[in-house]
């Protein structure tokens, strides 16, 4: 009995740690962003805009076949950008549940950047799916999600995180919002590291975590404590910002330079999107 419960918690512990490690690796590693490849060579602004255009197309199209073409394009881009396709596929599949939520998120963004008719169209697309639970709809949904997720993962894999934030800024997302996102990201990293460390620390002190009462209370206490630390940290970070002259309106650097190649690529991307839209209408 003891043995069984021990095994189970060992399993939980292991899967939790590997989930954390995966989260860190998936979001923080800049391995692919530093490789030489097609997407890496593009100006981050142009790359983001073109991939976003594909994304918008993918979520607005109503034909699984046409979206499938975009998916194929996405895989070709991954190949050209020296992202190993098998790992890429595995990653995107794992991220699908998470990104299903993100597809609904643009509703939120339309508040931030109003005036683009495409956004509301996209929202309609999603609500359409929710009300039509047929098999066709399900297939369309999966293809669409897989394509969107692949595009987003491709973007985040081939772009340095600091550049991605800069692009958000350049695209007119309010700076305070970008700063908040960047801090969330930082805390996520610190949080993941902290939880990892706590696990190791508790294990080294108590031996096997789950077999002893004491171990459990240490874990509970540490989780509360981690939360406390995170909130206290954000206060202190605010102080650090004040100390260096922050007055509530952060000023940040932005430096990009576009090459003719970037324009050509953007043009191609837009033509592809327009073509797909057009075929979507005809079909």
């Amino acid at each position: 009995m003891i043995n069984a419960s021990h095994k189970r918690s060992d399993f939980i512990e292991r899967s939790m740690l590997s989930a954390l490690a995966f989260l860190k690796e998936a979001t923080m590693s800049e391995e692919y962003a530093n490789r030489k490849g097609f997407l890496q060579s593009l100006d981050p602004r142009f790359k983001t805009i073109s991939l976003l255009a594909f994304l918008l197309t993918a979520v607005s199209l109503k034909s699984a076949v046409l979206i499938g073409i975009l998916y194929g394009l996405c895989l070709i881009l991954a190949l050209l950008s020296s992202v190993p396709v098998r790992r890429f596929l595995v990653r995107t599949l794992l991220f699908i549940p998470l990104f299903s939520i993100c597809i609904v998120l643009p509703t939120l963004f339309s508040l931030v950047t109003p005036g683009e008719p495409v956004w509301s169209f996209q929202v309609l697309g999603v609500s359409g799916i929710l009300t039509r639970p047929g098999v066709d709809g399900a297939v369309l949904f999966v293809v669409r999600i897989a394509t969107s997720v692949s595009l987003v993962v491709l973007l985040s894999l081939t772009t340095r995180y600091s550049e991605l934030l800069k692009v958000l800024r350049v695209l007119g997302i309010p700076q305070i919002f970008v700063l908040t996102v960047s801090m969330c990201y930082r805390y996520l990293y610190l949080f993941a590291t902290m939880v990892e460390n706590i696990f190791t620390a508790v294990k080294s002190r108590v031996g096997v975590v789950s077999r002893q009462r004491q171990g459990q209370s240490i874990v509970t206490w540490n989780i509360a404590n981690t939360w406390n630390r995170t909130t206290q940290m954000s206060e202190e970070v605010y102080m650090a910002m004040l100390s260096r002259g922050y007055t509530g309106e952060p000023r940040l650097l932005s430096e990009f330079n576009a090459m003719p190649k970037d324009w050509v690529w953007l043009l191609c991307a837009l033509i592809i999107c327009a073509g797909l839209f057009y075929s979507g209408h005809i079909l």
Partner: peptide, 26 residues
């Protein structure tokens, strides 16, 4: 200028370059 005890607190920008630039820009 204060150099904090905990450098994790002090550095809040996405890249070292931006962290160094933060002060002068403000």
């Amino acid at each position: 200028g204060l150099v904090f005890q905990n450098a994790d607190i002090q550095l809040f920008c996405p890249s070292v370059r931006e962290d160094i630039a933060f002060g002068p820009l403000q």
